[in-house]
Structures are given as C-alpha cells and as structure tokens.
Design a protein around this nucleic acid. Structure first.
Length: 273
DNA sequence: ACTTCTACCTGAGCGC
DNA sequence: TGCGCTCAGGTAGAAG
C-alpha cells in the first residue's frame, strides 16, 4: 500500500522514463478513475502535452504538463504507475495507457481500482485532499510544538491524528504503527494527553521511519511496486506492522493487534506505554 | 466542529 | 476443487 516513501520511490523511478516525453494519446479503460474533468476531456486535453517534471506531495504525485497544468495521481491502495516498453506485453490490471513519443508507454494499473486521477488546469478545480495537506514529515514544518498544538483539542486516539493527512502528510497504516512503536507510545493513547517529551519523540519517530522507508525504496507488503516494477526492501526493517503474535524485536514480548481508528494496529504491550 | 462509521473494490487466505 | 467468508486500507462523505 503506497504511503509517502513508496510514492517518493515511484516519483524517482518514473521521472527518468517519462520526463521530456510527449503524450500522443491517452487510452482510458476505466473512466471512473478519472475524477476530474470527464474522461474524454482528460484524454483530449492531454494529447500533445509534454511531461515536464514530477513532484510528490504527501501521497499525491503531480505530473506537470505545462504552466499551472498538471495531472494529479493518487495510488490509494493498489494503484501503480509503470513505464513499459511498447514491445513488451501490457501489464496486469492495466487501466490507463499514456502513449508516449519514446520507446515506452506510461501505464496506470490498479487491482482494486481505488486510484484517482485529475487533470488540473490553472486551479479550475480544488482537490480538497490535496489542498489541505499538512506538512511533510521529513521537513521543517513538522515539529513537536506543531504536533502538540494540532493535538490540543483531539480527544481521539493519537494514531488517528498521525493518519490524518491534514495534520501530517504521507503516513498510512504501516508507518503510523512503526512510528508509534519507535516512539514507545500506544496507538490508543488520547492525543491531547501526551507529554511534551512524547510529542517530541513521536515527531522524531515519524521523521525516522519515513526517512528509512525512502532510503530502503519503500515497503512492499502485498502489491506495491515502483515504476520499474521493483519491490521495496523496507519490509525487513518493520518492527511491528504485519507481525501480530510474533516476538517484539526489542524485548521478545508477543506483539498484539487491535483495531484503532478502524485500522488494524500492531503494537508491543511492553515497549509501548 | 468534532469523532466514528461506511462505501468503494478485488485478491489472498482460511475453514469446511 | 471450490465455495463462502473475512480481511486488507486511503479517503470522501455520511452519520452520530
């Protein structure tokens, strides 16, 4: 499931294949994935446009195709962007094909078809989820003071807060569980009742697990692959996610799984307080 | 204005 | 072998 490190890895691996390429045609096999404008307009307006650069913000990819014109892509759970040689067989679960001028085409594939694509032209449409993103975890915006203020009125679980993209951009279930373990904080703790020291620890932990995920080319748990079709290495560094009932790598206690904020959450009952 | 729940989907893994 | 069930989870939007 692509979270920030996986999306960043896609950005890095995709860029050399498609930046500078011009879109000759867009073939849309599942129109509902195009959230804005209509599938016809999306394909029509992109014809002849050149992909100038790719940026990432939170879990969104932004493919710039002109001044203030860009394709916004959210991979959700199983979406992928792949650069594939025109001579090679088409990828599994192919949903959208961007026919490029070069020897490869850009494919959007998706097993569960939750992915979303938009074509934004001079702010003609505000994408709420994109416009309201909080600070990047690896960056100056995320500080202990900031997190403490954001939690001031939050009486729900701390895990729900760090999963909220408006508060911090890019964490999903895997990195949220990993950050809470690294900080020694239970996912169920009431968000506004952490100590100053715990906000500090949690901020440092979020930065650490995200940076480590990026360094290891992302975490492949089930389906995630980068633009070259490669899986991420970070799964072997996971301390808790996907390790229910296995021994804690620090203290040996059996890890437990509960539901917090509607998500499966694995934690160490000994290391996390 | 907050929190929690549900819908959206398909494939993997399980018990029978 | 194959059926039916549960689970996986990011986000929008509904419900509480």
């Amino acid at each position: 499931m692509p979270e920030l490190p996986e999306v960043e890895q896609v950005r890095k691996t995709l860029s050399p294949h498609v930046v500078g390429q011009t879109i000759k045609e867009v073939e849309i096999r599942l129109p509902r994935l195009i959230q804005y404008p209509t599938a016809e307009e999306f394909a029509g307006k992109l014809k002849g446009k050149t992909i100038e650069s790719i940026e990432r913000r939170g879990k969104y990819l932004r493919l710039n195709v002109g001044k203030d014109t860009y394709i916004l892509v959210h991979l959700r759970m199983t979406g992928a962007l792949l650069a594939v040689a025109k001579t090679a067989p088409e990828p599994d679960y192919a949903k959208i094909r961007f026919v490029l001028t070069g020897p490869e085409d850009l494919w959007f594939t998706d097993i569960r078809t939750f992915g979303t694509l938009y074509l934004i032209d001079h702010d003609d449409k505000i994408i709420e989820g994109y416009a309201t993103l909080g600070p990047e975890p690896v960056g100056k915006g995320l500080t202990a003071d900031y997190l403490e203020k954001a939690c001031l009125k939050k009486t729900g679980a701390i895990k729900a807060v760090i999963l909220d993209q408006k508060i911090v951009a890019g964490l999903g279930n895997i990195y949220a569980d990993e950050a809470l373990f690294a900080a020694g904080i239970l996912p169920t703790r009431q968000a506004n009742k952490l100590t100053k020291e715990e906000y500090e620890k949690l901020v440092q932990a979020m930065k650490k697990v995200i940076a480590q995920g990026i360094k290891n080319h992302g975490t492949t748990f089930r389906n995630y692959q980068d633009a070259d079709g490669h899986k991420g290495d970070n799964v072997r560094h996971l301390m808790v996610y996907g390790r229910k009932a296995e021994p804690c790598k620090v203290c040996g206690t059996a890890l437990e799984q509960i539901k917090v904020a509607g998500r499966g959450s694995v934690y160490c009952p000994h290391c996390q307080k």
